[in-house]
Design a binder for these strands. Structure first.
Lengths: 119, 119
DNA sequence: CTCCTTGTGCAACTAAGTCGCATTGATAAA
DNA sequence: TTTATCAATGCGACTTAGTTGCACAAGGAG
């Protein structure tokens, strides 16, 4: 059984292990600060961003911008939507079905007021 | 017949007229640079952003982030989706129907590869 | 061991957007 | 008409997430 690193032909390093293990445990997409807080080791932000860029390039990680000028990262899975609440700013993964669209959809971001804040 | 400015209780100024008239003619959401190019007058970016913030606050304009760390603006209309192409970076307004979502959706952003780039 | 590639840390940089402040301009009161 | 008031504008400094250049470290190949 090849490791995820072997499968993608990149070296296994503590930094990469740490980033990936945080993403593996995450229920929702996380930004740099959130990931850093959860990581067991410290690393320079350049190291973080370079590794996440590599992961993305290899298709291991998917990123998108919320409405706070920050990138949010998650492990690549099947295409699903993210609901970003205007009020509490939480990001929630949701399943939606989308009607006909011209092109191949890879990411879906919905914004609005979540159930909890709406009430 | 009240002007749009009277209706929202704000002063009509050349800057505001210029911004709004660009947005009125736009087929798709535009960012600051795109709007500036199309405006008939010049104004400081602070003026632009403050006015657009006011428009947004009054519900006249809707803004969202694409994946390029820029805000895109359009006149508020019914909720519809924006498709952002990974390849050509064009932003296209599309009608979609989305299934059940927990909360009130105000904005929908789809990313992927558009029909033109996909082929 | 030496070469060479790849990963990391540090510090400087980038750029969209924001903010403080002085000035302008229009409206309202005197 | 003059004066007071308040919003709109311009300018320049600032903020901040993310990026880049460069020197150094690590680690495998020959």
């Amino acid at each position: 059984m090849k490791t995820i690193f072997e499968r993608h032909n990149i070296k296994e390093t503590p930094a990469r292990n740490s980033i990936l293990s945080v993403l593996k445990e995450a229920k929702n997409p996380l930004n740099y600060d959130q990931i850093r807080e959860k990581m067991d080791i410290e690393m320079d932000k350049a190291t973080f961003y370079r590794n996440i860029a590599k992961f993305e390039e290899l298709g291991m990680v998917h990123k998108f911008e919320a409405d706070d000028r920050k990138w949010y990262f998650e492990l690549s899975t099947s295409v699903h939507a993210h609901f970003i609440c205007d009020t509490c700013h939480k990001i929630i993964c949701v399943d939606v079905t989308i009607g006909d669209v011209e092109g191949e959809v890879k990411s879906i971001v919905l914004k609005g007021t979540c159930k909890g804040c709406k009430r």
